[in-house]
Design a protein around this nucleic acid. Structure first.
Lengths: 361, 361
DNA sequence: CTTGCATCTGACAACGTTGTCCAGGCTCTA
DNA sequence: TAGAGCCTGGACAACGTTGTCAGATGCAAG
């Protein structure tokens, strides 16, 4: 066995290859160009270009010579130069909140698949919910001259994108609306979904229902809160201040918020969780709670059916969000799209048990 | 020399560029260039470049004029042209199996963070476990002239990357080793992890233990199988053919495989699941199974602690895999790295209940 | 053997930026 | 006030590709 680095616990397996030819001082980084291929094949530059791009007008014999030179030199077309010349990069940018969040995985993948179908690559980055970082990232992508941009907004002012959009960068916002500019937006129906979820709890006899959500400056969080309030109002229930908790995101604070609303003067008998991260933490709290508390979460979670009780959720289709947005993006690029629209996709209530528990007071 | 505006003293440089031919029919897509900015500010091209790049040698007054012109025109540097000139793109490529798989989310994010710390963007795509698609994607990224490539291999022959690596594309393989080429590799210790997991089941009294894993052509799957066999052999247990199931991936077939080994002549009393997708399906099967069956899964799963019983797993640190690989990539680019290495990160057994159930026969 | 036509091929400019290098203007000193 | 030296600014080429266009070649017909 190989020695183990005792600090990191990693096994170090030395390798015997020589990378010396890659080091400075050598011809490191020099690559053959079409010119080199042309010289080797004894043809003109443009002929190589024609072969590489499969354009007509090259005799089979010439094509073979060129192809041999390409293989011998290991030539690969430099797309940077191509982009510069052609004006289109065949790549689109995706700015999301956190690539590691399970909600965004399927969304990214869906965008990627649509891009792939259009021959485009996907460049993506995480804003980490920071408006400045979102802007920095979006503008960096524009500097790369992506053909289009799918943005999950962190900030609420996107006027910085106006020059880019004017210059022809196709742009679609997903999951949350654009701020202060007129653009395509694809959303889930957060308001309706939350209202349905809370109404479901009310229908099962609950009247003291808590709401734990994200910062209200995030559009989806505000909409879900609005949905909660609407359902309560529809049922003629006055919402106590202590029942709503906003802006808490880290698990420890969510835990405290949940415990507080479960132990106040008018303790809640049910909780509506505003997003999947909150839901997970609340599940943990309720798992140890002495009496049963009903729970409905916004966003579905893997294994939700295997919990005890199963987790009732308001599910949104992340992949559909991504696909819809990306398809709209490419329709903008086709020129088949005219006025910006706002598309709202419906949510779906999935009952699995936790939302059907009766109030225990 | 150009005429001088006698009111301001600035030189007036006529804009000779006609760009109307770019996109016939509309001015859509035309963007200001440094030349336009220079013309408007009444300075030379290179002066604009200096301002844009924060290079010294520009008087504050000139800088202000240039900045005003930039803002007025909505100029943004064209990085394609910059890349062409400078040779480095400040972007790296990530080829993974499926962006939507929760295992790869944290890995991607970790790679992204390291890239960001080095001022680079991340371009990524999914191979969908298809070697051809992996190659197509990797080569497309090379054509874009990414500075480096992080690859989670789908195939087992990566000689197609040799010309690229020779040309200076830094390359690191993650999660699975490179095939037929000599390159940096960052892995989890699949063999050791599986052996530990199976030994754990044996230590709790099991002797008839099933193994359900992915296709053995996938390196990690083969290693985990090897670990399973090693643990059984260490305990002097002869493995029956019916106890191992390989190459099943879709849930329905995993379900059947599990049911078969639970009902054979020598039914297993415990199952070792070779990856997270298999684990999830097996959990579903066991949830309905009449007698308790012990389970250890490879890869941790969110909410694993909330199941009944809690899920015992062999956990690998996806984020650490990504971070380690990306850091190694940038060390290659720095030139501070010489020989390719194979790094194996340790796994960790997390006991939560399902792996500690005694055999029920 | 020339002409005409179609087919192939290659020279050249352009895409927008940055690196090199030189010119002109300024400050400082004697 | 002249000369030396420094600082700022700009002209120009180059990066590797593709679009344009004209030249070269081959073949058939006159």
């Amino acid at each position: 066995m190989h020695p183990v680095d005792d600090r990191t616990g990693r096994r170090i397996v030395p390798d015997t290859s020589r990378r010396a030819d890659r080091l400075p001082g050598s011809r490191y980084g020099t690559r053959p160009t079409m010119k080199d291929v042309a010289a080797r094949a004894g043809v003109g530059l443009k002929t190589v270009s024609r072969v590489v791009n499969g354009e007509p007008g090259v005799t089979p014999d010439t094509e073979r010579r060129v192809q041999e030179a390409i293989d011998a030199l290991g030539f690969r077309r430099n797309d940077s130069a191509r982009v510069l010349r052609k004006g289109r990069t065949a790549s689109i940018g995706l700015v999301l909140e956190d690539l590691a969040d399970p909600f965004y995985g399927p969304l990214s993948r869906a965008v990627e698949e649509v891009a792939r179908a259009h021959g485009a690559l996907l460049i993506n980055g995480s804003s980490a919910e920071d408006p400045d970082r979102e802007q920095e990232l979006a503008l960096a992508l524009c500097a790369r001259r992506v053909d289009g941009l799918v943005v999950i907004p962190a900030g609420d002012d996107h006027r910085y994108l106006e020059p880019e959009i004017r210059a022809g960068v196709a742009t679609v916002f997903v999951d949350r609306p654009a701020g202060k500019i007129d653009a395509d937006v694809v959303l889930s129906d957060s308001y309706g979904g939350a209202r349905d979820g809370v109404a479901h709890l009310i229908a099962h006899g609950h009247r003291r229902i808590g709401f734990i959500g994200d910062m209200p400056r995030i559009h989806t969080a505000a909409e879900r809160l609005r949905g909660y309030r609407a359902a309560m109002e529809d049922a003629g229930i006055a919402v106590e201040e202590a029942w709503t908790s906003l802006g808490v995101t880290d698990p420890e604070r969510v835990r405290r918020a949940a415990e507080e609303m479960l132990t106040g003067v008018d303790p809640v008998t049910a909780i509506f969780a505003g997003n999947n991260r909150v839901t997970v933490t609340v599940i943990r709290v309720l798992a140890e709670w002495p009496r049963p508390v009903a729970l409905v979460g916004f966003d579905d979670i893997e294994l939700a059916d295997l919990l005890h009780p199963g987790l009732t959720v308001v599910a949104q289709d992340a992949a559909l969000l991504g696909r819809t947005a990306a398809e709209r993006l490419f329709r903008q690029l086709d020129g088949t799209l005219l006025a910006p629209e706002r598309i709202e996709l419906p949510t779906r209530l999935i009952t699995r048990g936790s939302g059907e528990l009766p109030p225990a007071d």
